[in-house]
Amino acid sequence: MALNLKKNIARPDDFYQELIDMQRDLSEEEAQLMNAKLILILSNHIGDAETLSEAMKLARD
């Protein structure tokens, strides 16, 4: 498996708060659009097709 499912985020609480804060004042529609953009930006950063496929399958399970 190419996908890293071990701990990899140094300060998890900081990250999570940042993610939530980003959407605090967004409507549901806006939040969904932001999420979609975030997925696309991160997917491009990862690039590797196998890793992306694995992540998509895990998310859907």
Partner: peptide, 10 residues
């Protein structure tokens, strides 16, 4: 539709 619009905005 959301993904499509996200791609276009980006």
């Amino acid at each position: 539709r959301i993904f499509r619009d996200a791609v276009l905005e980006l």
